[in-house]
């Protein structure tokens, strides 16, 4: 069966060109969708389940990395994640991260030589994924490493937060980060949840994450980061979904496929 691919690129000329160049470099590859924004990329990837995703790194709606994360989280467990190729005109930190994590990427303008090499690697990776043992998914590992590795910012780590200033009216309350049970993304805000109450802060989870101590605060889903010592137990249901029971809070927190590896029993 021929391999299939999705192209997500917001600039129409560049999308058409990539499609034309792919037809030359890999005639057997079937392009099943060409979309112009990150949200459409997620929807079409999940509906059509192509083998390869070419994701522009900067797109309207969700960007390439957010789209990749959303696709990975909703991808069915019994199928290997698609091979992901990020396409970028110039994103210095992202390219460094791609290099570090051996993630495929293309630089715009895309040259035929580089595209030919990329297609060759993709063919090998697809063949390898077919014969890989259950549970091993190189594409998933690479994406996880990329998400944890600061693809959007310099690797220089900002100092860890000890106190979170929460503004409400004319008062700024200082919430000790140690009191936080979990953080939850809520649109353009983050919900800061302690045992007693929760607060809203005007920052994205993505901006907040590098300022948290990664050994104490674990991302378990693209929308939630949990303080590890507050996790009481992880429960796996019949469908394989993992939920967390937390100390001091009644609600359960879902764990995505990308982060499930943390909760394998010893």
């Amino acid at each position: 069966m021929n391999a299939t691919a999705l192209i997500a690129e917001d600039e129409p000329l560049l999308a058409d060109t990539l499609r034309a160049e792919l037809a030359r470099a890999w005639p057997a590859l079937r392009i099943v969708a060409s979309v112009a924004d990150g949200d459409a990329a997620v929807a079409h990837a999940l509906a059509l389940r192509p083998d390869v995703l070419f994701l522009d790194f900067r797109m309207p709606g969700q960007d390439g990395l957010q789209a990749a994360e959303a696709i990975a989280e909703a991808w069915p467990d019994d199928r290997p994640l698609p091979q992901i190729v990020f396409v970028t005109a110039y994103d210095r930190y992202a390219v460094q991260a791609f290099e570090r994590q051996a993630v495929d990427y293309l630089l715009k303008p895309v040259t035929p030589e580089r595209l030919a090499r990329c297609c060759e690697r993709l063919r090998r990776a697809l063949a390898a994924a077919q014969t890989a043992p259950a549970g091993a998914d190189a594409a998933l590992d690479a994406l996880r490493a990329l998400l944890g590795g600061g693809a959007l910012a310099p690797v220089a780590v900002p100092p860890h937060l000890d106190l979170i200033p929460v503004g409400s009216g004319d008062t700024v309350r200082m919430v000790p980060v140690d009191d936080v049970v979990y953080f939850e993304a809520a649109d353009k805000y983050v919900r800061v949840v302690t045992v007693e109450r929760d607060h809203l802060i005007r920052v994205s989870l993505r901006e907040l994450l590098p300022q948290l101590d990664a050994r104490r605060f674990w991302p378990v889903h693209r929308a939630s980061v949990v303080q590890a010592r507050c996790i009481e137990a992880a429960h796996r249901d019949e469908a394989g979904r993992i939920t967390l029971r937390l100390r001091g809070r009644a609600e359960r927190i879902g764990v995505s496929r990308l982060h499930a590896h943390r909760f394998k029993g010893l």
């Binding site: 600039e11 000329l13 560049l14 060109t17 900067r58 005109a89 110039y90 715009k108």
Partner: peptide
């Protein structure tokens, strides 16, 4: 801005042929 420049060049490269 390199991002703008390289994207513009990529479009130019596409247009030269088409």
């Amino acid at each position: 801005e390199p991002h703008m420049l390289f994207n513009t060049l990529a479009n130019l490269r596409a247009l030269i042929a088409s």
